[in-house]
Nucleic acid binder design. Structure first.
Length: 483
RNA sequence: GGCCCCUUGGUCAAGAGGUUAAGACAUCGCCCUUUCACGGCGGCGACACGAGUUCGAUUCUCGUAGGGGUCACCA
């Protein structure tokens, strides 16, 4: 069995669409799974749609995701170049087909084609294909036009009858009538190959064994087979994956503001979680677990788990998976990921970061949740006495004042300031007095944070803030309640 | 419109003729608890429709409906 070689072949037309990234993930996994090669090829044959910087964006995104390629434009490889505009192979291959009578020069103007299409549409023709105007031009006429420098394209001669069957790993055999197949253009008037042609030629020349691509190419696959057959080349395995949808009617698009990889990073999604979620859109693992790192996906992935129907993108599920990834991170890794977000609103360095991290980790869904959650650390904002009301804790401003007055000397008595010691000091007093935990601890949290929702309870907050600052805030609370 | 593909709860989905039709997210309730989370337990909720094949169809076949894709010198 030959080594599996897959490729990701984006066009440099802008940002990395999530659907595109998913294709990249699947192709990467397929190669890695079998110890094969993953190749990056840039398909820039459409000079008009080329976007400056888009290639770098592709590199960045793939690297950020850990989808490392074995061959590509930047690192080269045995079958380069890996940028189509630098590959000088298409015209000669097309001309080979012309020489063999399998393709022909077409001199039809854009205007004539437009008219043709308009007429076909008006006549309500079910089958709208090129009418073969140039298909059988006499050889001397072709030569004359060529010599005169007449603009032209090269088209493939499609069979007019019979059927063509292609095989897709997911969909099985699909058969189409040849008469609906257009004499497809191989080489454009500007001398560049069309996607359809370049793709086939390059996949062959680069030894690609498995082609993963979007479902929109399913109806073109028969044409690709005909091209492979014209050359006498082996046909790779096709795996067409369905689209990612915004809803049942619409594909995820730039208009939604969340169709690009970068959008999600900006929204606070953790990269491994993004990969995990989009891998899950249209693919189901064998077991119950669905939280995977990229390496685990490589282990777990199987083509048989791919779905044939479109999947609707669900940001809630993605958020849940994000939270789960963050929760599962070892303390230090979460710390490294979270710290930049903490530092957006919390610059103090004299706090117990590790206690904060521990308190924060189970409470973060998106990384962008963090700044708001820790903003009380640097500055205690003005807060209303009403915060001391808590029905369940049976506290109110009056009992809170009493509690804070009890708490203050206890905190002052804690010599070795850490969570454990604060806890035992406070709970000793709670037991001694036979009061509810909340009677003491709810007021403490409010006094320390000025917020009803905090990462951790009063004891953790005290540990985070440090002895001095904690006592200062308790005093401030007492003062506020006394006046 | 022609051709191709798809159709299990709100969403992702397992399931491959006989199942109490999994699981996850969301949602609701309870427990745990110094808030909120986390965690635990439980509830609600689905085989698009119609024929056929079969002792028996979510599962196979054919229709219908709905949805998607495609019919470019774009990829």
């Amino acid at each position: 069995m030959n080594k599996i070689r897959t490729r990701f072949a984006p066009s440099p037309t802008g940002f990395m669409h999530i659907g595109n990234l998913r294709t990249a993930i699947y192709t990467y996994i397929l190669a890695r799974k079998s110890g094969g090669d993953f190749i990056l090829r840039i398909e820039d044959t459409d000079t008009e749609r080329y976007v400056e910087g888009a290639v770098e964006k592709i590199y960045d995104t793939l690297r950020t995701c850990g989808l490392n390629w074995d061959e590509g434009p930047d690192i080269g490889g045995p079958v380069g170049p890996y940028i189509q505009s630098e590959r000088d192979v298409y015209v000669k291959h097309a001309e080979q087909l012309v020489a063999e009578g399998k393709a022909y020069y077409c001199f039809c103007t854009k205007e004539r084609l437009d008219e043709l299409h308009a007429a076909q549409k008006a006549a309500n023709l079910s089958n709208r294909t090129y009418d073969g105007h140039c298909r059988d031009l006499p050889a001397d006429e072709v030569k004359r036009l060529l010599d005169a420098g007449t603009p032209h394209v090269i088209r493939q001669k499609m069979p007019k009858e019979g059927t063509t069957t292609f095989h897709d790993v997911l969909y099985g055999d699909i058969t189409v009538e040849n008469e609906i197949l257009d004499d497809q253009i191989l080489i454009k008037a500007d001398g560049m190959p069309t996607y359809n042609f370049a793709n086939v030629v390059d996949d062959h020349l680069m030894g690609i064994t498995h082609v993963v691509r979007g479902n929109e190419y399913l109806s073109s696959a028969a044409k690709y087979n005909l091209l492979y057959e014209a050359f006498g080349w082996d046909i790779p395995e096709y795996i067409h994956v369905e689209h990612i949808m915004r809803d049942a009617q619409h594909k995820l698009s730039k208009r939604d503001g969340d169709a690009y990889f970068g959008d999600f990073v900006e929204k606070g999604f953790y990269v491994p979680a993004i990969i995990n979620y989009i891998a899950l859109l249209g693919w189901a693992p064998k077991g119950e677990n669905e939280i995977f790192t990229l390496d685990e996906l490589v282990q777990e992935f199987d083509i048989s788990g791919l779905s044939k129907s479109p999947a609707i993108f669900d940001i809630q599920k993605m958020t849940a998976i994000n939270a789960e990834h963050l929760r599962r991170l070892p303390h230090d890794e979460f710390k490294a990921v979270a710290l930049p977000y903490i530092r957006q609103t919390c610059k103090r360095t004299d706090i117990d970061v590790d206690v904060l991290i521990k308190a924060l980790q189970p409470r973060v869904e998106l990384l962008t949740d963090i700044p708001e959650k820790v903003d009380f650390i640097d500055t205690l904002r003005e807060y209303s006495d009403d915060l001391y009301f808590n029905k369940k804790m049976k506290t109110d401003p009056e009992t809170a004042l009493e509690a804070l007055n009890i708490i203050k000397p206890i905190l002052e008595g804690v010599t070795d300031w850490n969570e454990e010691n604060i806890h035992s000091a406070l709970f000793a007093e709670i037991e001694k007095r036979g009061v509810k935990n909340g009677f003491m601890l709810w007021p403490l949290r409010v006094a320390l944070s000025g917020k009803p929702l905090t990462p951790g309870g009063g004891i953790e907050l005290a540990a985070i803030l440090g002895k001095e600052e904690s006592i200062r805030r308790v005093e401030k609370g007492i003062e506020q309640l006394t006046k």
